[in-house]
Computed example of a mutant assay.
Amino acid sequence: MSISNNIFHAKVLLFGEYSILLDSNGLTIPYSHFNGSLSFIKKDSYTNLNFAHNSNEHLKSYAKYLDENATDIIDTRTFIKDVENGLYFESSIPEGYGLGSSGALVAAIYKEYGINPIKSKAGLTNDETQELKKHFSKLESFFHGKSSGIDPLICYLNHPLFIEDQQNIQSIGISRKNIESDDAVFIVNTNQVGKTAPLVDLFMQKCLNPSFSKLLKEELIPTTNKCIQSLLSGDLNHFFKNVKQLSKFQLNYLKEMIPSEFIQIWEKGLKQNDYLLKLCGSGGGGYLLGFTRNYTQVKKKLSAKGLEVIPVYREF
């Protein structure tokens, strides 16, 4: 009974939440502040045993799903045997916070139990990336009802990904041109768990409204794409202008996804122009994603309100 000691990081979808469902660009990065790995429950283990036992019970349900739906992707016989012997996912990635907790788990299981797995390496072809995404979509659907497969993909490859559309995804570097020491991407803890499936359902219902659908095509998708392109090109002046437009759009048209007690904080950032907030994942709780050119001052200001502020990317 042994297992590889592979660690899988959380992820942050910088841009593309919701709009990626309509084929906007997307940009996602690994986030090593939180991570997880497969392990076995041992009597002398220095871990939270309640967490480990709960994780193991969860894996039993997942193993049944995989045995019924994914025997072409996963060696379910070995996986089920290991689950019966106390396999669990030791993870610091908070669930329901938009940081890819299920994606990291799926990536870990595919790495350990995948049948002829595509190796995680630099220079994967688009065909290989699409094949991985297809596998991960199937494996992660247990957790969300429907999955694009992108969260497990970023957790598995552990490299920033530029999503041109659902059929074209590539590893990419993020420009450090024009970066200053106090530029930062950060997350703010809402101390609430968000639930992805009902919020995605709500968004898709809103899309049935022709006027809302028009707004998405004419404002949300172009603005999202501009955010990504200006960041990748290192044009930070235009980048922050574009992020401000995106923040305004989400506040105006996706307000149901923003916890009510954070509306005022969101508005204050837009008004004072020292930080900008947007959704991190589907919203409804979890973390909010922030952008600033004055991180030291903004962290002090938000922390004074009792908020937990954690840097994601500094000198990006």
Rank of each mutant, 00 (worst) to 15 (best):
K43V: 03
S45L: 06
S45A: 05
S45G: 08
Y46F: 11
T47P: 00
T47Q: 11
N48C: 15
L49E: 14
N50W: 03
N50L: 11
F51Q: 05
F51V: 07
F51Y: 06
A52G: 05
H53K: 09
H53N: 09
H53R: 13
H53S: 08
N54Q: 04
N54T: 00
N54A: 06
N54P: 00
N54D: 01
S55P: 00
N56G: 11
E57L: 13
E57P: 06
E57V: 13
H58F: 02
H58V: 01
L59P: 14
L59N: 14
S61V: 11
Y62M: 06
Y62D: 02
Y62Q: 12
Y65E: 11
L66F: 07
E68I: 09
E68G: 08
A70K: 08
A70D: 02
I73L: 12
I73T: 07
I74G: 07
I74P: 02
D75Q: 07
D75R: 10
D75N: 12
T76Q: 06
T76L: 10
T76H: 15
T76E: 09
T76A: 10
R77W: 08
R77T: 09
T78Q: 06
T78E: 10
F79P: 00
K81Y: 08
D82M: 03
V83F: 14
V83T: 15
V83D: 10
N85W: 03
N85Y: 03
N85A: 06
G86Y: 11
G86F: 08
L87S: 00
L87W: 00
F89N: 03
F89P: 04
F89I: 05
F89K: 03
E90S: 15
E90P: 05
S91N: 06
S92G: 05
I93D: 02
I93W: 02
P94T: 04
P94A: 02
P94L: 09
E95F: 15
G96R: 00
G96H: 05
Y97P: 02
L99F: 10
L99H: 04
G100Q: 00
S101M: 10
S102T: 14
G103A: 13
A104H: 08
A104I: 05
L105K: 06
V106Y: 09
V106C: 04
A107C: 10
A107L: 13
A108K: 00
A108F: 03
Y110D: 01
Y110K: 01
K111Q: 14
K111P: 06
E112W: 08
E112D: 14
E112M: 13
Y113S: 01
G114C: 04
I115F: 02
N116F: 11
N116L: 12
P117H: 05
I118N: 07
K121V: 06
K121F: 01
